[in-house]
């Protein structure tokens, strides 16, 4: 946020050297966005194809959406995905909130930067490593809870995603607000309940949205951990693709895409609110 503001100010000062005034800049930008979004647009486009081909257009229809909705397997996978996402988001957000509060408000904790690094580190560990590690861990301790295994795994890797917006919100909060509450006879719990948490809500919400979307979208870890019958939507789609692509897959993917966009937008919007 502040970085982009500084950047804008810089650009204003050096208008003569403004990169936007270079010839061909707008074409370059346009081709960049086409590169990013054309595949998605094609996917969405063919989800409305009336034929069973995902590559040859024959006419408009929304039949594939009805077919997708009526498909029992898809329903089951969607249900699994939602349960996993909701439950793991819930727990990940609670853990992330507690971690953020402890690391920014508890004076007794030492080596805070190290702990912060440890919380965020999973973002940088290759997902396949986490996936293999999780699988090995579960089979070592003999844990076999079906969908529960996936929930535990998702909760863990969602924590850093939920943590970051919550921490950002907490950092930007005036610390004197809590001091003022205590000065006005609120004890620590009342201060947390009446001041800190209400002000933190947008951050918590934003973190929960991110965690939810990360969980819904996850493939590699879920593939490793999932047992028979606990397929999630991404894994089901992967299975379908191997049999051959039909516009049904396009339809499901489009729905997933819309949900993702919705949540990311919501997360950004809520996080921006003061």
């Amino acid at each position: 946020m502040s970085n982009s503001k500084i950047l804008q100010a810089d650009i204003k000062i050096s208008k003569s050297k403004d990169i936007r005034s270079l010839p061909g800049f707008s074409w370059f930008t346009l081709s960049f966005f086409i590169y990013l979004y054309l595949p998605l647009m094609i996917l969405v486009f063919f989800s409305f194809n009336s034929s069973s081909s995902a590559t040859v257009w024959e006419g408009f229809s929304i039949d594939w959406y009805f077919k997708a909705f009526a498909n029992d397997d898809i329903q089951r996978a969607t249900k699994n995905s939602l349960i996993i996402a909701v439950v793991s988001t819930f727990f990940a957000t609670i853990f992330a909130t507690m971690a953020a509060l402890a690391l920014s408000r508890n004076r007794k904790i030492k080596h805070k930067p190290m702990f912060m690094g440890l919380i965020i580190l999973p973002l940088m560990v290759p997902e396949i490593v986490t996936a293999v590690a999780t699988l090995t861990f579960f089979s070592t301790i003999g844990l076999s809870l079906g969908i529960g295994n996936i929930i535990i795994a998702h909760t863990v890797f969602c924590i850093p995603f939920a943590y970051m917006p919550i921490r950002a919100r907490l950092q930007s909060m005036d610390k004197n607000l809590e001091v003022a509450a205590q000065d006005l006879y609120a004890n620590k719990w009342e201060t947390l309940r009446l001041i800190t948490l209400p002000i933190l809500v947008p951050g918590i919400f934003s973190g929960a949205m991110l965690a939810f979307i990360i969980s819904i979208d996850d493939f590699i870890i879920t593939l490793m951990v999932a047992e028979a019958g606990s397929n999630t939507l991404p894994i089901y789609i992967y299975g379908l693709v191997r049999k051959g692509i039909t516009p049904e897959i396009n339809a499901i993917s489009t729905i997933l895409l819309i949900i993702s966009i919705m949540f990311v937008t919501l997360s950004y919007w809520i996080g921006k609110k003061r």
Binding site: A180, A181, D183, L184, I195
Partner: peptide, 15 residues
């Protein structure tokens, strides 16, 4: 929170 003393903060710190 137990001292019968209240403070007006430099930057107000209104909730």
């Amino acid at each position: 929170e137990i001292r019968p003393v209240n403070t007006v903060f430099q930057h107000y710190s209104l909730f």
